[in-house]
């Protein structure tokens, strides 16, 4: 049995074998905001913050995450509110089908937490592990550079 603090709430779970943190979050804790697209660390749709670090939750074994603190997309802002990066994505039309959006939001929120006014290059580097199959990168970048007060 493992203990996780997810978005400030303590949970216990009994993951099986090499079950990923992503699977535990989605299938056992009902937090389906983090998406399961590649399960290979290639797309970033499963991005969460684990003990202060951005990770691909599909590459973390749940058993190994025992005792850690996790922030998922559900925990970026209090219920009913949007995190500034989420608001920026909405306002700049940085969402098409939306499948990649939680991953982008978590990676961007993590960047802005450490660096309130990142350069366009910082933003590109921080999001280089996130793939958007709708290829809406221009709008996503405009949203975040706008938030940073930068030209895209």
């Amino acid at each position: 049995m493992i203990r996780l603090t997810v978005n400030g709430i303590e949970h216990t779970a009994e993951p099986a074998g090499a079950e990923s943190l992503l699977a535990t979050l989605r299938d056992r804790l009902g937090l389906a905001g983090s998406k399961d697209a590649c399960e290979q660390g290639e797309c970033g749709s499963c991005s969460v913050i684990m003990d202060g670090e951005l990770v691909c939750s599909c590459l973390v074994m749940a058993a190994d995450a025992d005792g850690s603190e996790i922030t998922t997309v559900e925990g970026l802002a209090p219920a009913g509110e949007l995190h500034p990066v989420q608001r920026a994505l909405v306002e700049a039309h940085g969402v098409q089908c939306g499948y990649c959006t939680p991953g982008f939001a978590v990676a961007a929120a993590h960047l802005f937490e450490r660096e309130p006014s990142p350069s366009a290059d910082d933003i590109k580097e921080a999001l280089s592990g996130n793939i958007c199959r709708c290829t809406g990168y221009g709008a996503i970048l405009r949203a975040l550079t706008g938030l940073a007060g930068e030209e895209p």
Partner: peptide
């Protein structure tokens, strides 16, 4: 190497 989320692990 890969991306921030992968390099962190």
């Amino acid at each position: 190497v890969a991306s921030v989320g992968v390099r962190n692990r």
